[in-house]
C-alpha cells in the first residue's frame, strides 16, 4: 500500500516539471521553430535560479520558502534570456534549427559548469561544481489525503506542483483561446498567411521561443529542488529530451501531453518502487532506470505514424516564398 502511495506521490513530483518543459517545447514548435534545446534551456534556467537562491540565502535574511519562489521566477527569466540565443540563430541567422538546438545544449552545459565553479570560487573560496539548495517544504491536504490511493495525489505535494498546474492552464488558454495563440499556431502551419493578415512572424516566433525557454527553466529548477536538492551538472540528465519525446507523443497538443507526462512519471517512480518491492540490491536500480526510455521507444513505434508535426517547423521564414 505504501508502495502505491509513494508511486503516485513521486510520480507526480517528476511528471509535472516534465510537463511544463514539454509545454515549453510545444510553444516553440507550434510557432515553427524546432526545439531540441529544451535540455539546455532547463539547465541554464536552473543555473540562474540556483545562483540567485544561493546569493539570497547568503546575503539576505529572507526565509527559505520565499527564496524558492524567487528562484523559480529567476529560472523563468534565465531560461527565457538564454532562449533568445536559439531564437536569434533560428529566426534571424537562418541556422539549421536542429544544429542550433544541439549547439545550445552543448554551450549551456559548458557555460553553466564553468560559471558554477568560477562563482563558487568567488563566493565560497572553493571551486566546487554545485550549489546546494534548501529542501522545499511539502504539504498534505487535510482530509483529502486520507482517502485510500487517490489520497496520495494530495500527500506531500511540492508547492511548485500547484504553480505548474496553474501555469499549464494559463498557457493552454493562451495558445487555444486567444488571438495571440491563434497567430502563434498559424506561424507553425502557414507563416505566409500570418504575414498577409498583418502579423509579424519573426516577432511571434521570437516571443514563443522565449516562453519556451522560460517554461523549460521552471521545469529545470523544480527538478533541481525535488530530485537533486542541489544544482550541479547532474541536472543534464536528459529530462529535456524526455520532455520532447512526451511532446511528440502528445502530438504537439497540451492536454494529451499532460497525460503522457503523468504516464512517464508513474513509469519512472514505478521502476524505483518495483526495485524496492522485489528487495533487490541497489545494483539493480540501473536496470530499472531504463523503464521510461524503453517505454518511450515502444510507444513511439505505435504512435509516430499518425503524428503530424507543425508543417512549417524547421524552416526559417522567408518573406519572398509562397
Amino acid at each position: 500500500m505504501t508502495y502505491i502511495n509513494s508511486l503516485i506521490t513521486d510520480g507526480l513530483a517528476f511528471a509535472l516539471p516534465l510537463f511544463i518543459m514539454a509545454v515549453g517545447g510545444i510553444y516553440s514548435e507550434k510557432s515553427g521553430v524546432t526545439n531540441l534545446a529544451v535540455e539546455g534551456f532547463q539547465g541554464f534556467g536552473a543555473f540562474i535560479g540556483a545562483l540567485i537562491a544561493t546569493i539570497l540565502s547568503l546575503k539576505s535574511g529572507l526565509g527559505g520558502q520565499t527564496i524558492i519562489y524567487i528562484a523559480i521566477a529567476a529560472a523563468f527569466v534565465g531560461g527565457a534570456v538564454y532562449a533568445m540565443l536559439h531564437a536569434l540563430l533560428c529566426i534571424y541567422f537562418d541556422a539549421d534549427q536542429v544544429i542550433s538546438g544541439v549547439v545550445i545544449n552543448i554551450l549551456g552545459l559548458a557555460l553553466t559548469t564553468f560559471l558554477t565553479s568560477q562563482i563558487n570560487g568567488v563566493l565560497f573560496g572553493n571551486a566546487s561544481n554545485k550549489f546546494v539548495l534548501e529542501t522545499s517544504y511539502r504539504f498534505s491536504v487535510p482530509g483529502l489525503s486520507s482517502i485510500p490511493i487517490i489520497g496520495a495525489i494530495f500527500t506531500k505535494v511540492y508547492p511548485f506542483e500547484i504553480l505548474i498546474l496553474v501555469l499549464g492552464v494559463f498557457f493552454w488558454y493562451l495558445m487555444y483561446k486567444t488571438r495571440y495563440g491563434m497567430r502563434l499556431r498559424a506561424c507553425g502551419e502557414n507563416p505566409q498567411a500570418v504575414d498577409a493578415a498583418g502579423g509579424n512572424v519573426y516577432k511571434i516566433r521570437f516571443i514563443s521561443v522565449m516562453i519556451s525557454g522560460g517554461l523549460s527553466g521552471i521545469g529545470g529548477m523544480c527538478i533541481a529542488y525535488s530530485l537533486l536538492v542541489q544544482y550541479s551538472p547532474n541536472i543534464y540528465l536528459g529530462y529535456g529530451y524526455l520532455a520532447i519525446a512526451a511532446m511528440i507523443f502528445g502530438n504537439w497538443n497540451i492536454i494529451p501531453t499532460f497525460f503522457v507526462c503523468i504516464f512517464f512519471g508513474l513509469a519512472k517512480a514505478g521502476g524505483n518502487q518495483l526495485c524496492l518491492v522485489m528487495q533487490l540490491s541497489s545494483l539493480y536500480t540501473n536496470l530499472f532506470m531504463i523503464i521510461p526510455y524503453v517505454l518511450t521507444l515502444v510507444m513511439m513505434i505505435f504512435f509516430s505514424k499518425r503524428n503530424h508535426p507543425p508543417k512549417a517547423a524547421g524552416q526559417p521564414y522567408d518573406k519572398g516564398q509562397r
Partner: peptide, 23 residues
C-alpha cells in the same frame, strides 16, 4: 519503418545503453 525521429530514438537508446552497461 516507424517514422521515429532519429534524434529522439538515439537519445533514448543512449540512456538505455548507459544504464544497461553500467548494470
Amino acid at each position: 519503418r516507424f517514422n521515429i525521429h532519429e534524434v529522439v530514438s538515439t537519445i533514448m537508446v543512449n540512456y538505455i545503453i548507459s544504464y544497461v552497461t553500467a548494470f
